[in-house]
Simulated assay, not measured.
Amino acid sequence: MIEIGSKARKLPAPPPAVWDSLTHPRRPGARPWLNLLPDEVEPRVLEAEAPERVVWSSLWTHRPDDQIHLALTPVGTETSLRFTLLTPGEMPDQSQAGHLRRRLNVLLFADLRFSYGQ
Rank of each mutant, 00 (worst) to 15 (best):
G76I: 05
S57Y: 09
E40K: 08
T77L: 07
E90D: 15
E40A: 10
H24A: 13
H62N: 02
T73M: 04
L46C: 03
G89V: 01
G89R: 07
S21H: 12
A48T: 10
L72Q: 01
P32Y: 02
T77V: 04
T61Q: 13
T23R: 05
S21N: 05
A50V: 04
D93H: 11
D66H: 01
T61R: 15
P51G: 08
T23V: 14
R44N: 05
S57T: 06
V41K: 15
A50N: 11
V18G: 10
A50F: 00
F83D: 13
E42D: 14
V41D: 14
H62A: 12
R9C: 11
V41S: 15
P25R: 02
P15M: 08
T87Q: 02
T77C: 00
P14G: 09
P92Q: 05
P12S: 12
T77R: 09
D65Y: 11
E42M: 15
R82K: 15
P88R: 01
P12G: 07
H62K: 02
G89Y: 05
G89Q: 03
P12H: 14
P51H: 08
F83S: 11
D39C: 05
W60D: 07
L11C: 11
G76E: 01
A13M: 07
G29Y: 11
I68S: 08
P14F: 08
T79M: 06
D20T: 11
V54N: 07
T84F: 02
L36R: 14
L34M: 15
L72K: 01
R44D: 14
P14T: 03
N35V: 14
Q67V: 11
S21F: 02
E42H: 10
Q94M: 10
P14R: 13
A50C: 08
P12M: 10
V45S: 01
W56G: 01
A13C: 12
T77S: 11
L81Q: 04
A13R: 09
P28L: 13
T61I: 09
L70Y: 03
P74L: 05
E40Y: 12
A13I: 07
P92Y: 01
S21Q: 09
G76F: 03
E78G: 00
A13W: 10
H69N: 09
V55N: 06
V54R: 07
T84Y: 04
S58A: 07
V45C: 04
P88Y: 00
E47K: 15
L85F: 03
V41N: 14
A17K: 11
A30W: 00
H62Y: 14
S58Q: 06
H24F: 08
L59I: 05
A50K: 14
S21Y: 07
L81D: 01
G29I: 10
D93I: 05
G89S: 07
T87H: 05
P14Y: 06
W33V: 07
L85E: 03
R27N: 02
T73R: 14
M91P: 00
S57Q: 03
S21M: 13
R31S: 14
T79V: 04
R26G: 03
R9S: 10
L34F: 12
L86N: 02
E47Y: 08
L11D: 10
P25D: 06
L36A: 12
S80L: 15
